[in-house]
């Protein structure tokens, strides 16, 4: 029999309550350490539960393609990739996988509005996202990691972009949906906000969610984003402190 997403006792399958985030762990500036060989200008590694994500940022630099040059601002290119060893079953993903392209395009349009693109006319910024381990919520983990990597690369932005997911299962809005829950037919929204202005700049929902519940789920995701902002801010500050020391 199918188990409940939230048990009558109020627990989810991994022991969290509905409004709890997963364990978060991050490392900024991995570029100066183990990833130096890649030649990246900025990097960040983020773990959210068992979802692990590495982001490298290259640029601003001269565009690789002449045609991509814009005269008044920088161009942003995003590559999104899920490692073939990231899930239990090894799958070789095609480069042209539509889902990956879609994810890349979502992240691209999200960050284009936050990065001060006009500061770098005729140049290019490249973001490479690699999901190393997949346990649900890859989009919002990638967004958070990208924010850290961009900061690490010293690219000026208006604000943080923090993202979090929330879903709705048997009557309860749940925060930070994991892979098992995604498999239980839970509609999941991914929400990204710029915390200082409080604006929503990313909202993604791929299945049907009743309008009556939508408000509750978005509110919960917002709470998650606020918590996430505190976590990211602490991480950024401590990494800056370490740098200054």
């Amino acid at each position: 029999m199918k188990s409940d997403v939230v048990s009558p006792e109020g627990f989810r399958c991994d022991g969290r309550r509905p409004n709890e985030l997963r364990r978060f762990n991050c490392d900024m500036g991995t570029a100066s350490g183990g990833y130096a060989g890649s030649g990246a200008d900025g990097a960040a590694y983020v773990e959210q539960g068992n979802t692990r994500c590495l982001v490298l940022v290259f640029g601003p630099k001269e565009p690789s393609m002449r045609s991509a040059v814009l005269h008044d601002r920088a161009t942003l290119s995003v590559e999104f990739n899920i490692a073939s060893f990231s899930s239990g079953e090894r799958k070789t993903k095609l480069r042209k996988d539509k889902r990956l392209l879609e994810m890349a395009s979502i992240i691209k349009s999200t960050f284009e509005s936050v990065i001060l693109m006009s500061s770098f006319p005729r140049s290019e910024i490249t973001i490479q996202i690699q999901i190393l381990q997949f346990d649900g919520g890859s989009l919002h983990t990638a967004v958070n990691a990208t924010t850290l990597a961009l900061m690490n690369a010293g690219i000026p932005m208006e604000d943080y972009v923090v993202a979090c997911s929330a879903g709705f299962g048997n009557g309860h809005p749940i925060l930070d949906v994991n892979y098992t829950e995604e498999g239980m037919d839970v509609p999941v929204i991914s929400l990204g906000i710029t915390p200082r202005s409080g604006k929503v700049i990313l909202l993604n929902l791929e299945s049907r969610l009743h309008l009556d519940e939508f408000e509750k789920v978005v509110t919960l995701a917002r709470d998650g984003c606020t918590q996430m902002h505190e976590i990211l801010d602490t991480a950024v500050r401590s990494s800056a402190e370490a740098l200054a020391r």
């Binding site: 022991g15 364990r23 079953e89 346990d135 098992t180």
Partner: peptide, 19 residues
Amino acid sequence: VRKTRKGSVIKVVRELYLR
């Protein structure tokens, strides 16, 4: 470790938060 319908064996790792 779980066997899928197709017959391949996969390892499922899940977190557990103890409270």
